[in-house]
C-alpha cells in the first residue's frame, strides 16, 4: 500500500433474513487497510452470515457493502481474486490428495507456485500426499489455511481460523497473520472468544443478534487492562509507599509481601519496587475479555451478560 487507500471493507446497515429468522439487522463495519481486525461474537450472532455476504456467497437483503472498493454483488469474481478465504466449516470429501486440491484451487487463481504450497505446508506441518477426506479436523484446517494464504492476497477473510489447531500451531498461525500485516495487507478474522485474537488484532468488533454492539482499539483496551501483581521482598515494606503510585490501586502489605492491582502500565510500580530487594514477582494476565464486555455493558446496552456468556 504505497498510496493512501480507501477502507478495505465497509458495510452499512447490512440486513439479511432467512425466511422469518433475522440473521443480520443492520451491521456496520469499517476495516482499514493494513490492520488485523477481530470479528467477535457468539455462535449464531451473524459472523458467518456477514462474511459470506462479503464473498457474495449469499446476498444481502438491504444495506451497502464494499470490499476493496467494489460491490461483491456485481463484482464478486474480481474481488475474490484479491481475497484469501478460510470457511468456518471446512468439509472436504475428495479422495484426492491435499496437494491436488491446493494445486487446483491455485489454478482457479491463475496458478500458485508448487514450492509456495510446499513451504506453507511444511510450516504448518501438513502432509500434502494424504487424501483430504481422511484428514483430522486440525489437518483440514491446515489445508484451509494454506489455500487462504498461498496466493498472498490483499485481504484475508478467516472464519474461526484457530479452531482445531493445537496451541503451537495457533502461535504459528498468529505469526503468519503478523507477517501479512507487516506487508501492509489486511486480515479480517472471526472468533467466538477475544483471547484468540487479542494478541494480534489491532481492533475488534463484537456482533450480537445481528448487530455490532462494540468496537474497540486493542491498544486502548490493553491500556485500561487491570492486572493483579504480587511482589515478594527481602524485608518488610510500607504499603503507603506503594499506594500513592501512578496506576496502582488496592495496595496491601502482608509482612514482606505486597499485592496490588495495576491499571495500564506497571512502570511506576516497578521503579518503586526496584529500590528494595525483590525476591519474587508474579502478575496475572489481564482479563481483557472481561474488560471488553464490562465496558460496553456499562453503557446500559445489556451487552455484559450476554457478552460474557458468549465468551464462555
Amino acid at each position: 500500500m504505497t498510496v493512501p487507500s480507501p477502507p478495505v471493507i465497509t458495510a452499512h446497515g447490512l440486513t439479511k433474513s432467512y425466511g422469518r429468522h433475522r440473521a443480520l439487522s443492520g451491521v456496520d463495519l469499517d476495516v482499514r487497510p493494513g490492520e488485523v481486525f477481530g470479528f467477535l461474537g457468539p455462535n449464531g450472532a451473524g459472523k458467518t452470515t456477514t462474511i459470506r455476504i462479503l464473498l457474495d456467497l449469499i446476498r444481502r437483503d438491504s444495506g451497502d457493502v464494499a470490499v476493496l472498493d467494489r460491490d461483491p454483488r456485481s463484482e464478486g469474481v474480481d474481488i475474490r481474486r484479491h481475497i484469501g478465504y478460510l470457511p468456518g466449516e471446512l468439509t472436504m470429501s475428495s479422495r484426492r490428495p491435499a496437494r491436488e486440491l491446493l494445486t487446483y484451487l491455485g489454478n482457479l487463481r491463475g496458478g500458485v507456485r508448487p514450492d509456495r504450497i510446499a513451504e506453507l505446508a511444511e510450516r504448518l506441518g501438513l502432509d500434502l500426499a494424504r487424501p483430504v477426506r481422511g484428514l483430522s479436523k486440525g489437518n483440514k484446517q491446515k489445508v484451509g489455511l494454506v489455500q487462504a494464504f498461498m496466493h498472498d492476497p490483499r485481504l484475508l477473510i478467516l472464519d474461526e481460523p484457530t479452531s482445531g489447531l493445537d496451541p503451537l500451531l495457533q502461535q504459528e498461525f498468529l505469526a503468519m497473520v503478523r507477517e501479512v500485516r507487516g506487508q501492509g495487507r489486511t486480515v479480517f478474522m472471526s472468533s467466538h472468544v477475544l483471547s484468540e485474537v487479542q494478541d494480534v488484532a489491532d481492533r475488534a468488533a463484537v456482533i450480537r443478534s445481528g448487530r455490532i454492539v462494540a468496537l474497540e482499539d486493542m491498544d486502548a483496551l490493553r491500556a485500561r487492562a487491570v492486572r493483579r501483581v504480587t511482589l515478594g521482598f527481602a524485608a518488610p515494606v510500607d504499603a503507603a509507599e506503594f499506594a500513592r503510585l501512578e496506576n496502582v490501586r488496592d495496595a496491601a502489605v502482608d509482612g514482606t509481601s505486597l499485592t496490588c492491582t495495576v491499571e495500564g502500565s506497571p512502570d511506576a510500580l516497578i521503579k518503586a519496587a526496584a529500590r528494595h530487594t525483590v525476591l519474587s514477582l508474579s502478575s496475572e494476565e489481564p482479563d481483557l475479555e472481561g474488560l471488553f464486555f464490562t465496558y460496553y455493558g456499562a453503557n446500559g446496552s445489556g451487552v455484559d451478560e450476554e457478552g460474557r456468556h458468549a465468551a464462555g
Binding site: D78, P87, M92, S94
Partner: peptide, 14 residues
Amino acid sequence: EDGGLELVLAHPVS
C-alpha cells in the same frame, strides 16, 4: 451440501 462448493465459489470463478 458437502461444503466443497463454498470453497470453489470463494475463488475468482463465476
